[in-house]
């Protein structure tokens, strides 16, 4: 069975088809990268998969269960988590509190009015573990608004991990992260490989080719190719539509 099945998903804004009959089968444990030029519709696709945005037509299934009409919180509870391309955290909370809240969402009722939540060891321990996996445990007590950009990206990952997803949708986790920092970040992601299924949107090609089992190329809302990284790299159509641009930019 596939972990995530997307069938004929569509979304348009006016005349603009942002998602155009997208179909994907993501195998359990796979890291499936989606690449594509700016404005291709990658973030929109993530928003549709996560339930943040409704779809015009098409189906989304998680482990064979149809989730097309579920809300974002309902999907998260079934094990489908996402991160945001533009960091979206709780700025007034510490990193630990941000993550502990994600743990709380799946562990026990949140209609508890009396116990002091900051003193709940189980929550904090699980949150620390997620922070550790994202490489941010040393900054646990810092308010999110005081974290650096790179740290925000890690916090995004930690929060998503803390929901204990089976399928994780990552929207450009490395956006704006460079150099050594990016390398350790990729290492953090690699350690997650096999434990959970990932849909990874990323512009950083080194990261994509280092992590992905398969790659899909999204251009103008359509998937123009899906395959192993090497096959994609040498696909002439892909090179023309996408990789070529990159090389030109570099040149």
């Amino acid at each position: 069975m596939t972990a995530l099945t997307v069938t004929d998903l569509c979304k348009h804004y006016g005349a603009l088809k942002v998602t155009d009959h997208v179909s994907l089968d993501i195998a359990p444990g796979e890291i499936h990268a989606i690449i594509g030029p700016n404005g291709a519709g990658k973030t929109t696709l993530i928003a549709q998969l996560s339930g943040q945005l409704g779809s015009d037509s098409g189906r989304v299934a998680l482990d064979g269960k149809d989730i097309t009409h579920l809300s974002m919180p309902e999907r998260v509870r079934l094990g489908l988590a996402r991160s945001f391309q533009i960091t979206s955290v709780l700025p007034g909370f510490t990193a630990l509190e941000n993550v502990a809240l994600a743990v709380q969402a799946r562990q026990g009722s949140s209609f508890r009015f009396f116990g002091t939540v900051a003193a709940e060891r189980a929550l904090n321990a699980a949150a620390m573990e997620a922070l550790h996996e994202a490489g941010l445990d040393h900054r646990a007590q810092i308010p999110a608004r005081s974290l650096s950009h790179g740290e925000h990206r890690r916090l995004e990952l930690a929060i998503a991990l803390a929901t204990k997803p089976r399928v994780l949708l990552l929207d450009e986790p490395l956006a704006g992260v460079g150099g050594e920092d990016a390398e350790t970040f990729v290492e953090n992601l690699r350690r997650l490989k096999g434990r959970l299924t990932m849909v990874l949107i990323e512009h950083d090609m080194d990261a994509v080719f280092a992590l992905a089992d398969r790659v899909s190329v999204l251009v103008y809302g359509r998937i123009i190719a899906t395959g192993a990284p090497d096959a994609i790299r040498s696909d002439p159509e892909v090179r023309a539509a996408y990789l070529g641009e990159e090389e030109q930019e570099i040149a």
Binding site: Q52, M72, V76, S88, G92
Partner: peptide, 11 residues
């Protein structure tokens, strides 16, 4: 602080 984030973690 951020309702969208809260929905994205399951609330």
């Amino acid at each position: 602080e951020n309702p969208t984030r809260m929905e994205a973690i399951g609330f």
